[in-house]
């Protein structure tokens, strides 16, 4: 399905590292496989004859549906990662993400209170980092995941410098 982007036209988006797919895969595996295994337990117990409830069809349907949803989410991951983008403009940083539920956000440099860089265990192995911007608003959920470490450090310095130059009060 070709979808019309909601972001303003004429912007060259910087994409995040393709290696970020691996990070998402690990997160996916931890989250979904555990869920599927736990939900499959009743099936095993029913098949072994230890449990009389739930009925067999229910014991099969629940993990099966969860598994299908999980696989669907798995197939979406590469596209979702490709959809993440950011663009440094003169006065603000644009961040976009999502395919079905698209989101484009602008964070003015003058409004940034501080910048976080977080590195998880999987990200460290791949040399990636996650950059998070904070403004005075808790609604600003501006994260750029999957940045190469060098690019993350550069962006942080860049944002800090630009923020200082354009600093505004609340």
């Amino acid at each position: 399905m070709r979808t019309e982007a909601i972001d303003p036209p004429g912007i060259t988006w910087q994409r995040v590292s393709p290696k970020y797919v691996t990070v998402r895969l690990v997160q996916w595996a931890i989250g979904n496989l555990v869920t599927v295994v736990v939900l499959s337990l009743p099936l095993v117990l029913v098949l072994l004859g230890w449990w009389r409830w739930p009925p067999l069809w229910l014991a099969i349907t629940v993990p099966a549906v969860t598994l299908v949803l999980a696989i669907w989410r798995l197939l979406l991951i590469p596209r979702q990662v490709r959809a993440i983008g950011y663009a440094e403009r003169d006065d603000d940083l644009l961040i976009r993400g999502g395919i079905f539920f698209q989101r484009t956000m602008t964070v003015p440099y003058g409004r940034m209170q501080y910048v976080d860089i977080g590195v998880g265990p999987v990200e460290r192995g791949l040399g990636l980092c996650t950059l998070k911007l904070h403004t005075a608003s808790p609604g600003t959920n501006a994260t750029i995941p999957g940045l190469p470490a060098a690019e993350g450090a550069r962006l942080r310095e860049q944002l800090a410098a630009r923020g200082e130059a354009r600093l505004a009060g609340l």
Binding site: E4, Q102, R103, T106, S137, G139, T140
Partner: peptide, 25 residues
Amino acid sequence: TQSMALHQGPLARRFRVADLVLHTT
């Protein structure tokens, strides 16, 4: 205005509309 975001779900895309969220304290 602190920051802003445009949001659009699949249904909204079908009708070519979008939401604009302004972030405030």
